[in-house]
Design a protein around this nucleic acid. Structure first.
Lengths: 339, 339
DNA sequence: CTGTTAGCGCTTTCAA
DNA sequence: TTGAAAGCGCTAACAG
């Protein structure tokens, strides 16, 4: 392994001079710099990050904590974060919490151990607060993406849950729906809570009936098995049965369609479905499921940007908050006018 | 920051004893161990990985090099690799090469700098050889996934390109196709080359005609724009026009279907399409596109397993090779018998 | 079973 | 503009 001492010896300078050249710090004569750079090139020197971190307390490593990278929403976030990180000379560590605060906690310790410079985190739920506070205790900056947590003074990149929910529901209302159900995740997840409240607010705004039998809880993981939910919904008396479902996530929406079909319920004729978030539309044709597409790549890209500014101390002291709008894509799953 | 010296002082032992407790190395009396562990717990000690790496030359970091994490094939690999890594106490660094050897090279240097313990790599193409040899020069083990490279003595987890290609083509042949085109990626990528040869071999085996106008080259990235390819194909005289397309990747297959439809060609009536690799089937219904589903998660999971064995020196000296079979999913895109 | 010493490769601090 | 010394937190090697 080539060290700065090897370079120093060959270039007839001190190790310190080599360090200055590498880091572009202090002042160096043009001649010395050229000489050192030539030797670095010649010997193919690659700096040792561990040694560097040990003294400088900087690792040039950013970390991304998501609940599951296989959710396309998070996949795109990862890509956006990685692009920005690479562009700014950082590497990206990947962590999957599986919506599990304990697993998340274990990761946080590993990240602290590794000396990550900052963390881009979509926390599992409100109990993740202690994990984030642990980061703060170690003076490691973090940026919340997708899910905020109360009373944490940090930068955030969030979805416009209120507006997007409202638009999805008003689309259903325009189609003539009056009995609208919501299938959501646990309310200790910020996005679930906000979408829940926006659901209630929008129904109230339009003076539509509410019914606790129309409020269902599943979760945000891929295998959100909502067959029981659907069964319960179908078991309601005709007059009480919802004519539309608002799914608060892509997987919930897809599973709703899947289980409705399995139960021989026609979508959208019998029950319409809309969902928050989308899946990539690889085929380029009109997708079936009406959804609100989030600019997921930018959650990662902007998030990494904010984080790096925090890490490099070029950010204002006050926390910043970016709210990203979604784009509605109407599909057959909700395009059926009710009289 | 709490160090082993803080622990040592408080527990009235030497730093070395603390180190031994933490690493479960050497022998320690039950009493000392308990005492030290209590203090570690009390002070909330988290080891400093940089310091550890600097002396031990081990970072407990594995790296994953893929061409693009947003390709579902690689997303699942990442999940599999991360699961295994976490399970064995390693963290995972993510790198997207975008099929670009230069970008890959830049990453390799960063990984060497960070002191990664090993790399799970889907190399960009045959020219990636020099990048991998650089890793070898630094004694960093690597495992090739998905794409092998000649004359590199290393563990590999590969797809059964020959068999899978043969099965896809024989399915088309059974449907009565005699003029089968291939849309592939550059042949300096191992998977492309193997699928190319398997294509020729299978046609020969069945004594079917070959035609250089049926061999097209695109690439494996998501935006494989094959509209020109499709136009060229459609411009062939009726008698020479292929009746089926073998797409060598998921994105090529999807884009083929997309552009055929845009050109008002009926799939499968006018031209049938099958593809190697698949996309996740979230809706649970029969997918349209006939595809060969690879066990992508296991590419990552097994790959990480082999890599860790290599890193921890518990692997046999001779390179190991795992070949994973694919599963055919027949869809409407090829289910039309030709007379 | 436990401790001492030295040093990993680099940067910070101070001095020249 | 350059260099010397010290030390980051930990573990390998040796000693007892």
């Amino acid at each position: 392994m080539v060290t700065i001492y090897d370079i120093a010896k060959k270039a007839n300078v001190s190790a310190m001079t080599v360090s200055r050249v590498i880091n572009n710090s202090g002042s160096i004569s043009q001649k010395t710099r050229k000489k050192v750079e030539a030797v670095i090139e010649e010997l193919g020197y690659i700096p040792n990050s561990s040694a560097r971190s040990l003294t400088s307390k900087k690792s040039k490593i950013l970390s991304l904590m998501v609940t599951d990278i296989t959710n396309p929403f998070f996949t795109n976030i990862a890509r956006g974060a990685e692009d920005k990180a690479m562009q700014m000379g950082y590497q990206l560590m990947l962590c999957n919490s599986d919506e599990n605060v304990e697993k998340e906690s274990k990761y946080i310790d590993m990240l602290i151990s590794t000396g990550t410079d900052g963390v881009l985190a979509a926390p599992a739920n409100d109990s993740s607060k202690k994990n984030l506070q642990k980061l703060a205790k170690y003076k490691i900056p973090y940026v919340l993406i997708d899910r905020y947590i109360e009373d944490l003074a940090c930068d955030q990149v969030l979805s416009d849950n209120e507006m997007t929910t409202k638009r999805l529901l008003e689309h259903l209302i325009k189609q003539g729906h009056k009995k609208i159900a919501i299938v959501n995740a646990p309310l200790d997840i910020a996005t679930a809570k906000e979408r829940h409240h926006a659901y209630l607010d929008t129904l109230a705004l339009h003076e539509l009936p509410m019914n606790e039998n129309w409020i269902y809880q599943s979760h945000f993981l891929q295998d959100s098995d909502i067959s029981d939910t659907i069964k319960k919904m179908l078991a309601l008396p005709e007059t009480e049965r919802p004519t539309a479902i608002f799914a608060t996530s892509n997987f919930i929406g897809m599973n709703a369609v899947k289980y409705l079909k399995e139960n021989e319920v026609k979508v959208p004729e019998d029950i319409a479905v809309v969902c928050y978030d989308s899946i990539p539309n690889y085929f380029g044709n009109e997708p079936f499921l009406t959804s609100a597409e989030q600019p997921s790549y930018n959650f990662g890209y902007f998030g990494a940007q904010l984080l790096i500014e925090r890490v490099e101390n070029t950010a204002p002291a006050t926390p910043r908050k970016i709210v990203l709008p979604s784009e509605l894509h109407l599909g057959a799953s909700s395009l059926f006018k009710r009289k």
